[in-house]
Design a protein around this nucleic acid. Structure first.
Lengths: 242, 242
DNA sequence: ATTGACTCTAACGTAACGTTATCGTTTATG
DNA sequence: CATAAACGATAACGTTACGTTAGAGTCAAT
C-alpha cells in the first residue's frame, strides 16, 4: 500500500506517517526506487496499536518503547497511566470548581448597580479626598463625586450605608457569628437589596470581594482597620445560615 | 521589587516572568539603568490574575486578550472554557474506560470488542465536533463516526451506565437507605433491566458480587473509592423493600 | 578587591505534527 | 505521446510555555 491509502484507511495524515517514519516509530516495509513508502498489513496492525496508545494519552516515545520491547509490561504501563489520567481528571475537576465559583462571584459583582459601585468610591465627604486625587487623578475623583452627588439627591443611601459601616466598625473585633454581628450584617443585606437583588451566594461572594479587591478593602477599612475582613466573615456566616 | 522577589512571592520561575515580559503579557513597571526589571504591586495583581486564568487552563494568548480588553466578557469566556473542560474530562473518562477494558483484556478477563477500541475516537455526539475536525481533519472524524455508528447502541448504554456510576459516586458517603440513594439505585435497576431481566434477588446478588469480585470492585471504585460497597448496600436495601 | 547572590540576553530543546514550498513520479486523458 | 492531475518526497519553519545552559554584567557585603 502507498502512504495515502494507509493514511486514509486509519484516519491519520500523510504527514503523520512521515513523522512516524522519521522517528522510527513506524517504518514502511520497504521503499520503491523512487523513494515511495510501501506499507503492508503488518504495518497497519502496528499502526492500530500506535493509535490505541495514542488515544489513551501515551507520548510517542513511550509507545515506541512499549511496542519495540516485547518484555515491557503492558499492564503495568497501562495501570500507571490510568493513575495519571485519574489525577488529571481530578485536576480538571478542581479547575471546574474554581471556574464555577468565579462565575458566581463575577455574576454577583455584576449584579452590583452603579450606585453601589460608586458607593465604594465616594471620597467627597472624607478627609482623604486629597490623597485620592493624587492617586487616581482629579478627573476620576471628580467624576465619582459627581455621580455620587446625583445619587445623594435621589436618596440618602450613602448616608445610611456609612452609618451602617460605622456601626459595623464598632463591633469589628467581636465574633462575626455573634448575634449582634449577624443582626447588623442582616441590615446590610437588606440595604443592598434596596439596590439590586442579591442571592445569598452573591452576597457571600460580595463579601469575599471586599477583601480580595484592595480598592474595596481600603475603602471599607477606612471606617476601621479590619472591617472588610470582619464583614466578609460575617456575610459568609449569614449567607450560610439561610 | 526585583524579579526574584516577585517570582518567589507568587511561586513562578524567573524565566517565566522573562517570558511574560517577552510576550507582553506582564511588563515590569520600569527597568533600572542596568536593565533590571522592577515590579510594583500593580504588576503583582495582574500576575495573580494571569495565574488564575492559567490555572483554569487558558492559553497565555487568551489571557492577554482577556486582561487587555476590558470589554471582554469574563463570564462568557469562563463558561465557554468550562464546557471545553467538561468535554476534556469526558474524553479522559473514555480513555479510562478503554484502558480499564484493555487491562482486563490483557489479563484475559474480558475481551474487548471493536467498539471499545474506537470508543475514544467518538466525537459524533458532542458539540466540539467542529473543533475535532479542525484538529484531526475531516476524514479522520468521518471515519471514526462511521465506525462508531454501528456500535452506537451499545455505546449509549455504556455511556448511560457511566453517568449513573458517577451520580452514584457523588453520594457514596451518604446513607444507602436515604431517598436519594434509593432513587438512584432504582435507576440502576431499571437500567440493568434493559439488558437482561433481573429479579430483585438477582439484583441483590449482583450487588454482592460488586464487592466480592475484585475485578468488579476495582472497576466500580474507579468512579470513587468505596462506591462498590455503597452500591451493594443500597441494592440490598432496594431489593428488600420490594 | 573579592565573593556570592542576583540579573541580563541569547539561543537551543521539547511534542507531535501542520503547513507551505519546491520538486520528482505515476497515471489518466486528450 | 504529451500534458495535467494526483500523489510522493524532502526540507524547514511554526506552534506552546517555558526549562536549561551559557556567557557576562550588577549589586551589596566582607
Amino acid at each position: 500500500m502507498q502512504i495515502k491509502e494507509v493514511a486514509d484507511l486509519v484516519g491519520v495524515s500523510v504527514r503523520t506517517l512521515h513523522h512516524y517514519d522519521a522517528i522510527g516509530l513506524l517504518k514502511p516495509e520497504h521503499t520503491t526506487e523512487a523513494g515511495y513508502r510501501i506499507y503492508t498489513d503488518d504495518e497497519l496492525e502496528r499502526l492500530q496499536q500506535i493509535l490505541f496508545y495514542k488515544e489513551v494519552g501515551f507520548p510517542l516515545k513511550k509507545i515506541k518503547a512499549i511496542l519495540d520491547n516485547p518484555t515491557f509490561d503492558q499492564v503495568e504501563a497501562l495501570e500507571k497511566h490510568r493513575e495519571r489520567l485519574l489525577a488529571k481528571r481530578s485536576q480538571i475537576d478542581t479547575m471546574l470548581e474554581t471556574i464555577q465559583k468565579t462565575i458566581q462571584h463575577t455574576k454577583g459583582e455584576m449584579n452590583m448597580s452603579n450606585k453601589e459601585r460608586f458607593a465604594g468610591f465616594d471620597f467627597s465627604n472624607n478627609p482623604y479626598e486629597q490623597e485620592a486625587r493624587e492617586r487616581w487623578g482629579n478627573e476620576a475623583v471628580d467624576k465619582a463625586n459627581a455621580k455620587i452627588k446625583q445619587l445623594k439627591d435621589e436618596e440618602n443611601l450613602q448616608q445610611t450605608m456609612n452609618d451602617l459601616y460605622r456601626r459595623l466598625a464598632q463591633i469589628r473585633n467581636e465574633d462575626p457569628a455573634s448575634d449582634i454581628a449577624q443582626q447588623r450584617i442582616g441590615e446590610w443585606y437588606q440595604l443592598l437589596n434596596h439596590i439590586g437583588t442579591y442571592s445569598y451566594d452573591a452576597f457571600k461572594g460580595l463579601g469575599k470581594m471586599y477583601v480580595e479587591d484592595e480598592r474595596f478593602q481600603r475603602n471599607i477599612d477606612q471606617f476601621g482597620e479590619g472591617l472588610a475582613i470582619f464583614m466578609r466573615d460575617a456575610m459568609a456566616i449569614y449567607a450560610d445560615h439561610r
